[in-house]
Simulated assay, not measured.
Amino acid sequence: MNYENVLSEFQNGITTITINRPKKLNALNSDTIQELHDAFEEADNNEDTKVIIITGSGEKAFVAGADISEFAHFSVNEGGQLAAQGQALLFDFVENLSTPVIAAVNGFALGGGLELAMSCHFRVASSNARMGLPETSLGVIPGYGGTQRLPQLVGKGRAMEMIMTAGMIDAKQALSYGLVNHVVEQDELLGLCDKIASKIMKNSSVAIGKAIKAINANYKDGKDGYKVEIKQFGKCFGTEDFVEGTTAFLEKRKADFPGK
Rank of each mutant, 00 (worst) to 15 (best):
Q85V: 09
N45S: 12
D44L: 10
E35S: 03
E251A: 15
G56E: 00
F233D: 09
A83V: 12
D44V: 11
T239I: 09
M162L: 14
S176H: 11
A83S: 14
A117G: 01
A84D: 08
Y177A: 02
F122G: 05
P134W: 05
D187W: 05
M164T: 09
V63R: 01
D170F: 01
L97Y: 00
L250M: 14
N96C: 06
I102S: 03
E9Y: 13
F233I: 12
A255M: 10
Q85H: 09
G167N: 08
R253A: 12
F91T: 06
F62V: 02
N5P: 01
R158A: 15
K223Y: 15
L7D: 13
E229S: 13
S137Y: 05
V63M: 03
R21M: 07
N218W: 08
E9W: 09
L179Q: 02
G143N: 09
T15I: 07
G157F: 12
A255V: 11
S204F: 08
D92P: 01
R158Y: 14
K260Q: 12
T247N: 15
K252H: 15
N45W: 03
K23M: 06
A248E: 10
T32A: 05
N5K: 14
P258Q: 05
I169V: 11
K210Q: 11
K210S: 10
I33M: 13
T32Q: 03
G86A: 06
I102R: 01
N12F: 12
L175M: 10
G111E: 01
K213D: 12
G58F: 01
M164W: 05
P142N: 01
A72W: 13
